[in-house]
Each structure stands twice: as structure tokens, then as C-alpha cells.
Amino acid sequence: MKIIRDRTIVDDDFVHVTDGSEQAAATKPIVPLAEYVKSRETLLARHAAVGVRVPSDKLPSDIPDLQRLALIAIEFPKFTDGRGYSVARMLRQRHAYRGELRAVGWVLRDQLLYLERCGFNAFEMKPGKPLDSGLEAFSEFSVRYQADVDDPRPLYRRR
């Protein structure tokens, strides 16, 4: 599957897995949060890199040992559900999480810039949506009023 990572279209090296046999076979699995919470020591010992898939109603404090995760995927059950933006910002700024932060689910081109500004660096677009059109979204604005994850200075400290 193709995803956008760091503003580039790449082949996904992670796989979403649900049951145990799939998990064992994958080098870089993305497992549901509940599964990770249940058996994280096994997972972290067995795989080169572990990703976790976080439902939209969870907070960073619900993810144990998050610094050991190579990837955190935040679910967007609907494109209008804005919780993930706050969760991402908290992960990056408050928890200093430096791994891959991926938006999954109902992810659309016109969300990408705001998602990136909140700390996401990878995007699984909603199936059927073109990825190349998505790449254009990142450069639609050359000025930002607010602080964001890239630059903690609001415009009034840069003006």
C-alpha cells in the first residue's frame, strides 16, 4: 500500500494486523491499542518495530511505554472528528514522541496541512483518494499565525 510519509509517496513498510498469527508473521506490525496493552512485552521483544493503532477516544496517557513505539497511528473515524489533532500535538509537545505519527481512517487532502502542523508526518489516505493531489496541500499556505509543532513561535514572535 502507498502512503504519504514526510511529504513523499512511499510503499508502506508496516502492516495493520489484528490476530495473533498475522502479528507473528509481520516484521513491522501495527496492532490495535488493546492488543498492545495486553501483550506489549512480547510484541516489543519479537518485532523490529512495533506500531500501535489508537482509537479516536483515547489520550496519550492511555498508551503505555509510548517511547518504545516506532509508530503511533491515530484513527479518524470521520473526517470531521478533530480529537486526533489535539492528541497528536500532545504526543509531540508534551510527551516528546519522535517516532512516526500517522493519520489513518477517513483522511482527506484538505486535512493534511493541519494534521501535519499538529505533528503528523505520515498519512494513509481514505481509499479511493489520490495521493499525488494530497502532496500539493502541504504548500498551500506560506504563512501561519499560530505556533505549531514545527515552530513553537506564533507569528508575533517572527513578524
Binding site: G82, Y85, R89, C118, Y145, Q146
Partner: peptide
């Protein structure tokens, strides 16, 4: 200015 296109609070 702060609220205009605030990325975290648009949804």
C-alpha cells in the same frame, strides 16, 4: 489572528 486557520481547532 490566533483563531484564523488554527490547525488544532478547526474540527
Amino acid at each position: 489572528q490566533w483563531s484564523t486557520f488554527h490547525p488544532e481547532f478547526a474540527n
